[in-house]
Amino acid sequence: MLGLLETGSGFWNALIWVIVVLLIGAIVYYIRNKGEQGYKKNTEQDKPFISGNPESSKEGSHVSASHIYWGFTEALRGYYNPLVKMHTGNLNDYSGWIVIIMALVLILVGVSG
């Protein structure tokens, strides 16, 4: 069958997947059409509701890249601090790592027999 990829313990067929996604999408669309019909654009219904507070300006609401995943990096501070410190940008470290890894691999290959 076209598109059938055997993985040894199962198979994958993108075409079946696409068909299933389209089917589910059709069902979702059908259910969505069953919903409330009273929605009108450009009225009071269109506005977001932020606990009754006034909506802030759109330009100010953009979250810039350095604030995304702030919690993630903050929680993993112990992992990230040494890792960032490792990337010194110092050329001596670059060649040092190569020599160290080369020595390690030589030892491993030599010892293993």
Binding site: V84, H87, T88, G89, N90, L91, N92
Partner: peptide, 10 residues
Amino acid sequence: EVDKARRLRG
């Protein structure tokens, strides 16, 4: 100097 010419890091 190597350790001064390193704007690219991290």
